[in-house]
Simulated scan of single mutants.
Amino acid sequence: MGTEEPAFPAAADRSQWRYRPRRAFWRSRLVRAICLVTVLAICALVILALVREQTGTQGFLVGLALAVLPVPLLMAAFRWLDRVEPGPWKNLLFAFAWGAFAAALVAILANSFAVRWIATATADPDSADHLGATVIAPVVEESAKAAAILLLFLFRRRNFG
């Protein structure tokens, strides 16, 4: 019963403690990067499944090869054009991945919905296909690609030029 330590330190000792708030789980750069890669990979897999369903395995493989073939050349060309004041390669990679996967999936889904809607509204499937391919598809796809630029501006403003 001699020297028992108090349950709480003295007030002077408590003033030296620092409260360190925990960072939210989603604020971690690694978590955000993993989430972004996962979302883009899911978009890619959905696109691959949709294209394979529509074209068959042989057409799918030919289309995949022809789509992937120019990507290294395009990325090298964009890096060469940006040689005076180069931006981060992560931004370029994100923009390419977004355009290839997320924007393409949005365009596929929105275009097919719009064409079906126009075909039922006008009872003319042929003109709906033509209207979807010439008017709706470019607007939807380019707007979806512009979302990548907006995201880069919002989340990587320091590197945006």
Rank of each mutant, 00 (worst) to 15 (best):
P72T: 10
L66A: 14
P70R: 01
V39F: 15
G63I: 01
G59Y: 01
T57E: 02
A76Y: 07
W80L: 14
L81N: 11
C43V: 01
L64W: 04
A44H: 08
A41E: 09
L61N: 07
I42A: 13
T38E: 00
A44F: 07
L73A: 15
L69A: 15
L66E: 11
A49T: 13
V46N: 00
G56E: 05
V71N: 03
M75S: 06
R52A: 06
L69E: 08
P88D: 13
V71H: 04
L48E: 04
T38H: 01
A49Y: 09
V39H: 05
I47L: 15
Q54R: 14
W80T: 12
I42D: 01
E85T: 14
T38K: 04
L48G: 12
G56M: 04
L40K: 03
V37C: 11
L64V: 10
D82N: 14
A41T: 14
A65D: 03
I47M: 10
L69S: 10
R52P: 00
G87K: 10
W80N: 11
Q54I: 02
C43W: 01
G59V: 05
T38A: 14
T57D: 04
D82S: 14
L69T: 13
R52I: 01
L73Y: 12
L74P: 05
L50C: 09
V84I: 11
V51H: 04
R83Y: 08
V68Q: 07
F78A: 11
P72L: 05
W80A: 15
G87T: 15
V62F: 02
M75N: 06
L73T: 11
L66Y: 07
L73W: 12
M75K: 04
V46Y: 03
P70D: 08
L40Q: 12
F60H: 01
V68R: 02
P86A: 10
R52T: 02
P86V: 09
V37W: 05
A41Y: 06
L81W: 11
P88R: 15
V71W: 03
L66Q: 12
V39K: 02
I42W: 05
C43Q: 01
W80G: 10
L64I: 02
L40G: 03
G59S: 08
L45W: 09
A49D: 14
L50T: 03
P72K: 06
V46T: 15
F78E: 12
V46H: 00
V46D: 03
V46Q: 02
L74C: 11
A67R: 10
V84G: 09
I42T: 14
V51M: 00
I42H: 02
P70W: 05
E85Y: 10
F78I: 13
V71Q: 09
Q54H: 05
I42L: 15
R79D: 11
Q58L: 03
R52Y: 02
A67L: 07
L50Y: 01
L81A: 13
V51C: 04
V62H: 01
A65G: 14
E85M: 08
